[in-house]
């Protein structure tokens, strides 16, 4: 093979394999060597690829069939899904003998995305089905067996209200998430003072509940915590984090909100929400921002959670080019730290 052709093939990130009429490997490009690490020239193709469909497709092409594609999962260093294109080619140096050229397109990320979408749809339908089942059942019961039972009717209506609220909240959160994902590309550009955002949240969370407002201790100096962001979205972030801190810690314990310039970088502002609550087992921490991930489903539901709060936080922070860090110790409490791009103060 010409040197220039080889260097072209080696420049491609797609693994390429050429086999001769006896299905011996006659050429591998660099990407191919990197993937099939145990391969050597002159080996049989079946020595490195055990997948029968891939071998059969190659055999057919060598027997004169036209170009074809197969999708296979190959056990390389890590199992990878490939769409393999198998095309006939002739090699001049070998009197135009028929060879097959295989190119391996990595489609793992597509398969993963499909799997995630599938899981997501399954989760959403489960989360919607539960309240719906209760509503359908209560309606039927009120029309039939409980007709005229005023006490039961009163109780059922209360439950139906809670279940329909739950459906409404779920739909709101899902819409919030999908809007956020659509906006992720364009980072916000307004200057927002975190102190204002937090104060608004504390007022709206506390409402007329003096006791609750007492629990939230904010020590942020107005004017020193300006970030680049979207006021509404940042409000959602801190509302979620402060709500969690309150929900997952004992009644009456303090929730502390602080802000500072991030260590090692004055380009970011770090806002921390610290509670003295249950704490979180380290095994759960990496998964907390997954949609619908809850450590204790019963508890989250009992306090009206959809399990989407931290997923929304995560996406808002992606939108802001910021990040979230979670530190926690079981039994001692948790700190959720939000890093946001600082507004240039000059």
């Amino acid at each position: 093979m010409k040197k220039s052709v080889k260097s072209i093939l080696n420049g491609l990130v797609v693994p390429i394999l050429i086999v001769d009429g006896k299905m011996r490997i006659s050429y591998m490009n660099a990407a191919s060597m990197a993937h099939f690490t145990n391969a050597k020239a002159d080996m049989l193709m079946s020595d490195i690829i055990e997948n029968q469909r891939c071998l059969t497709a190659t055999k057919r092409v060598l027997d004169g069939d036209p170009e074809t594609q197969v999708e296979v999962t190959l056990q390389g260093v890590v199992p990878t899904s490939f769409r393999v294109n198998v095309a006939p080619m002739t090699v001049e140096a070998e009197k135009d003998a028929l060879h097959a050229i295989l190119s391996f397109e990595d489609i793992s990320h597509i398969r993963e995305a499909e799997q995630m979408r599938h899981d997501f749809v399954a989760n959403v339908s489960h989360e919607l089905r539960s309240p719906l089942t209760a509503l359908v059942g209560f309606i039927e019961t009120l029309q039939g067996p409980a007709k005229g039972d005023a006490v039961a009717a009163e109780r059922f209506l209360g439950m139906m209200e809670r279940e329909s609220d739950r459906m409404a909240r779920l739909i709101d959160d899902l819409l919030s998430l999908s809007k956020l994902q659509a906006r992720e590309r364009d980072a916000p550009s307004a200057v927002v003072d975190i102190a204002d955002v937090i104060n608004d949240i504390v007022v709206s969370l506390g409402g007329s509940n003096e006791h609750l407002r007492e629990r939230i201790k904010v020590s942020i100096v107005k004017g020193e915590t300006k970030v680049i962001g979207d006021k509404n979205e940042l409000g959602q972030v801190f509302q979620n984090l402060i709500e969690n801190a309150i929900k997952y810690s004992p009644d009456g314990s303090d929730v502390v909100v602080t802000a500072c310039a991030a260590e090692k970088s004055d380009e970011h502002i770090c806002v921390c929400v610290t509670d003295q609550g249950d704490g979180i087992d380290p095994v759960h921490i990496p998964r907390l921002t997954e949609r619908f991930y809850r450590i204790d489903k019963g508890r989250s539901r009992a306090i009206g959670g959809t399990g989407l709060g931290l997923a929304i936080v995560k996406h808002i922070l992606i939108h802001h080019r910021g990040s979230l860090k979670i530190k926690s110790k079981l039994g001692e409490g948790s700190t959720f730290s939000v890093y946001l791009p600082a507004a240039q103060t000059a």
């Binding site: 539960s130 209760a134 067996p145 439950m159």
Partner: peptide, 24 residues
């Protein structure tokens, strides 16, 4: 494990004359 559904089942089963225990 869904309290509302457990309640729904309890009411209807008892209405039909069966005894009921619920766990979550």
């Amino acid at each position: 494990d869904e309290p509302a559904q457990a309640e729904l089942l309890r009411y209807n089963l008892e209405k039909n004359g069966w005894r009921v225990v619920c766990v979550d």
